[in-house]
């Protein structure tokens, strides 16, 4: 299979690899997987005043899965929650010129973003609601 230059660039120089404290109140974590290939992708965001200040990822998978999540973290930084919600897998497919067999990698990245945002928003809800224990 022929990968685009952008995929190879992200694969060889992945941006924002690493972890944030998943228990921190201002961090949202998304973890998703694709069983048929065994890929696992973790994507985390750190939010300050409604804006994503930092984003990190760790992906075990093929070049396209790594490139998709690397690109996602680049795009997330500096966006508001609402803007982040608008990121679609087709945007990733287009930017990286992913072939049809690798589209599921971009879906994985979109799902990871959604989960991370949902996790962050849940934490904020939990913080404003009275403690139950």
């Amino acid at each position: 299979m022929v990968y685009s230059d952008k995929v190879i660039d992200h694969y060889e120089n992945p941006r924002n690899v690493g972890s944030l404290d998943k228990d921190a109140m201002d961090v949202g974590t998304g973890i998703v997987g694709a069983p048929e290939c065994g890929d696992v992708m973790k994507l985390q965001i750190q939010v300050e005043g409604g804006v994503i200040k930092d984003a990190k990822f760790k992906t075990f998978g093929c070049g396209s899965a790594i490139a998709s999540s690397s690109l996602a973290t680049e795009w997330l930084k500096g966006r508001t929650i609402a803007e982040a919600t608008a990121i679609r897998n087709v945007d990733i497919v287009e930017e990286l010129a992913l072939p049809p067999v690798k589209i599921h990698c971009s879906v994985l990245a979109e799902d990871a973003i959604k989960q991370a945002l949902a996790d962050y928003q849940n934490k904020q809800k939990g913080a404003s609601a009275p403690s139950e224990d």
Binding site: I31, V32, G33, E36, H104, D111
Partner: peptide, 19 residues
């Protein structure tokens, strides 16, 4: 059949363990 694409069945805890 086992799904193609994102896994909707496994728990985040299990995925974290695999990671």
């Amino acid at each position: 059949a086992l799904g193609n694409g994102t896994d909707q069945t496994s728990s985040p805890m299990f995925l974290m363990e695999m990671m």
